[in-house]
Design a binder for these strands. Structure first.
Lengths: 364, 364
DNA sequence: CTGTTAGCGCATTCAC
DNA sequence: GTGAATGCGCTAACAG
């Protein structure tokens, strides 16, 4: 590893002079500067970021937490594009990203082929209590962090609110002096989607919600209720079913809702995955979509457009979410004021799973 | 930021003593050790990873490159689960991951809402030539790196082969003293899939390949040819169509293949996305799947099971890929010998897009 | 313009 | 057992 000292020796100057030359400081002669630069290129010198960060007390590094992993969770479906946006943004601003190891989200699957977890013992150097997200940030000296997949029942929530470094939380409406939240306007988007159904003439609209530990569940439910109210439709608690974002739960919730009489003429699911489950339930009951029952999802996952029929749903731009989160974080580290809530545009994508209710249903 | 020095002052000992106590060195009395530990917890001390790495000359950090991004590329579809596996593995071994900013994969989309790229000037400190992947690794002192989305025409290939640090390349069969390749056995998997079609009785099987810059394209094509040969079927160059992994290209390639007479009774696409395009082409020509034409994909993306009909395809376990890549890298950094080729199991998932050819087609 | 000094936070010699 | 000294690679503040 060729260091600044090696360069100095080779050029016959002091290490400090090399540093100055490399950074284009004015107090260095063009001649020696050129010589040093040529030497650096020749010897393939690269600065040690660690050392630089240590002395400058700045790392130009952002942290990224992906909490709900496990192959099929958040990461599988959505994190990819968000990470892509975040990376591209970081690249544009010259920042790096460190992906944090968060113990607790251990293997589960994917264990070594030989069945063991292999490797060295944990080797956790300082046996100081349980490391929190913020502690990880401090250890790594990241200047800000994006947290994906945070749940409302995470015990770290109060601590996060008091974070001394900029934090952006995805889909969790927690705010603090340095904490912002990013996500689409769930309430409003759901309002739009349900309003669309209402405009089509639907009056009995079932809502399949996600689990209560996700902030988006509350918000989407609220949007659903507001839409009904705006159209003067009496809300019916029986029409609000609880799922957990999974396909399986969507199936169950839809099956239950379809037992109701009069049967709902439309179903809105708080995730596309649950909408897919609902679609199954409808198929099992030989109900046609959209002729007998209209269906709307949320997310616009890639599969949505390939369903039979293609699913009407709310599209979120995950890539842009990542980009905006990165931008917010970086600006915050540079001392700029940032909004407590960053809303990412979402839009209703109308496909073929929605139509006006049949006349007889309509009249009920 | 509370440092080891602060602890020393508070405990009335030297910084060195604190370091020893924290690491459980034997040459420190239990009494003072406990005192220091208690103090550390109390003052919420966290070691500075940067400083530690600098002195220990070890970072326990892996690098991750995701080369073909841009919201819809590799990252969108596959990188998520791979990253998940990598992270979980790293967590298990106590490693961290840094996601590299690779200039050149700039914004394209997702630009700031205000249209500008914003932020500070590039501020690239040392104006030393163009930074390569390996240079980034050196700067960050990562001990090994996983590269996703590398293309066969990447000019860095020769340099990578000579890498001084362990590298794992996804789906690129480049090997060197410290370079391994990870991926499924594309040739064999395709062989299996095509053999399945042959066993069903198909004899005219069209193959829709990916672009030539991907190593997997060659390998899959080879598997296709070998299967034909194994069943004594004369290969017909007309049946080999070129795509680029995109849905659009799958549509075009399939449309062309379906012009042939006698018409192929089955199509195999080198990616599910292209299979989806092929499905469209089939629909446009009013050909039924699988009655008129059987269809096989590759990847088993989430949408595959929701197609009409559900797609027979080759499933790759991306999560496991990430895990194995991480394990390989970490073991390599620990001096263990690692295989030059890590093959991740893949399996044919038989759904409803495949069946025996109709009798009349069969006889031709 | 140039070089010397000092220190970022930590771990590892070595004396005491 | 303990603490002082040294250095990881780099940059900042000085002094020449």
């Amino acid at each position: 590893m060729v260091t600044i000292k090696d360069l100095a020796k080779a050029a016959g100057v002091s290490p400090a002079a090399v540093s100055k030359a490399l950074h284009g400081h004015p107090d260095i002669s063009q001649a020696t500067r050129q010589r040093i630069l040529a030497l650096a290129a020749e010897m393939n010198y690269r600065p040690n970021v660690l050392a630089r960060s240590l002395v400058k007390q700045r790392t130009t590094t952002l942290g990224l937490f992906v909490l709900s992993r496990g192959s099929e969770g958040f990461l599988g479906q959505f994190a990819g594009p968000i990470i892509g946006g975040l990376m591209d943004c970081a690249t544009a601003y010259g920042y790096d990203i460190v992906l944090f190891s968060t113990p607790g989200n251990g293997p589960a699957r994917g264990l070594d082929a030989d069945g063991t977890a292999g490797g060295e013992p944990p080797a956790s150097p300082p046996p100081v209590s349980h490391v929190s997200y913020l502690d990880l940030c401090r250890e790594r000296q990241v200047e800000g962090a994006l947290i994906l997949g945070l749940r409302l029942d995470d015990p770290a929530l109060p601590e996060l609110r008091e974070s001394p470094i900029p934090l952006v939380l995805h889909d969790v409406a927690l705010t603090g002096p340095h904490v912002s939240c990013i996500g689409c306007d769930n309430s409003h988007s759901t309002f739009e989607a349900v309003s669309f159904l209402l405009k089509l003439g639907h009056r009995r609209i079932g809502f399949i919600n996600g689990h209560a530990q996700a902030a988006v569940s509350r918000e989407r439910l609220e949007g659903y209720r507001q839409a009904l109210q705006a159209f003067g439709v009496e809300p019916d608690p029986c029409l609000e079913a609880a799922g957990d974002f999974s396909q399986e739960s969507g199936y169950r919730a839809a099956a239950a809702l379809l037992e109701l009489r009069p049967r709902p003429t439309a179903l809105m699911a708080a995730s596309d995955l649950m909408a897919i489950g609902a679609l199954e339930a409808l198929r099992v009951q030989a109900l046609r979509v959209p002729e007998d029952v209209s269906l709307v999802g949320f997310d616009d996952i890639p599969a949505a457009q390939h369903l039979q029929p293609p699913l009407t749903t709310v599209r979120q731009d995950r890539y842009q979410t990542g980009w905006l989160a990165g931008k917010t974080l970086i600006e915050a580290t540079q001392g700029k004021m940032v909004p407590a809530r960053i809303v990412v545009p979402a839009q209703l994508v109308i496909r073929q799973s929605t139509a006006s209710p049949a006349a007889e249903a309509r009249s009920t």
